[in-house]
């Protein structure tokens, strides 16, 4: 008996199940078959089926249009890391429990291991690579380095993205808001106090227009 044979793996369950909330028009443009009654899910409500073999997906990644064929079971994280070679977001728990894969979709921080890639159709995806570089870092990235808010650095991209979403929303967040923003981000090296410090410092520098 193979492991968990008696259960159903998450990916197997997802395989062939439609991604939700895809507009019928978008699928029609993509030339994909609409969901039919014989496909096993009831019919004509505008929910469309993406075949297990994959369907066309368009999204914006760090300001650039991306268009590719993608299986319905593929998570946004797997799309980024395994298909597109965008490896800043980390695959750590694969269950939405640690926040290391956090990216921003249409302005909201999401754990990309729990989001199907097709659910990002037509949306704007922002990853750690898109917000700054070593030569031109985002204030958060600069302050993370300056305050040493990182050790092994594996949780860092997720931390930074959770905080970036906060700072985009609130120019002068309270310490509580900062702690709340990263409350789902686990760090095994134990960098939390300096993460709070770096976030406050970055907020000051952005808010104060420095």
């Amino acid at each position: 008996m193979a492991e968990e044979r008696d259960g159903v793996s998450r990916r197997q369950f997802l395989k062939g199940v439609s991604a939700s909330a895809l507009g019928a028009a978008a699928l029609a443009r993509a030339g994909l078959p609409a969901l039919r009654a014989e496909d096993g899910a009831g019919g004509t409500t505008g929910i469309e089926r993406i075949p297990a073999s994959g369907g066309k997906l368009d999204l914006t990644l760090n300001g650039k249009a991306v268009s590719l064929a993608c299986e319905p079971r593929t998570t946004l994280l797997d799309l980024l890391r395994q298909r597109l070679g965008v490896t800043g977001a980390k695959d750590v728990c694969d269950r939405g429990a640690c926040g290391a894969c956090t990216v921003i979709v249409d302005g909201k921080p999401v754990v990309s291991c729990m989001l199907l890639a097709h659910d990002c159709s037509g949306k704007k995806v922002e990853t750690i690579e898109g917000i700054g570089s070593p030569e031109s870092p985002h204030a958060l990235q600069r302050e993370f380095a300056r305050c040493d808010a990182l050790q092994c650095g594996f949780c860092t991209p997720g931390m930074v993205m959770s905080l970036k979403a906060l700072l985009d929303r609130e120019r002068t967040p309270s310490v509580e808001a900062i702690k709340g923003a990263v409350s789902g981000n686990i760090c095994r090296c134990g960098t939390y106090p300096r993460v709070f410090e770096a976030a406050q410092s970055a907020a000051r520098s952005i808010g104060g227009g420095k």
């Binding site: 980390k90 570089s133 070593p134 870092p137 600069r142 380095a145 040493d148 990182l150």
Partner: peptide, 17 residues
């Protein structure tokens, strides 16, 4: 500050993963 801090904070540090 650690010398590889910015690499890590910008997602540029390449891990085996």
């Amino acid at each position: 500050p650690r010398v590889d801090g910015l690499l890590k904070a910008t997602g540029k540090a390449r891990y085996t993963h």
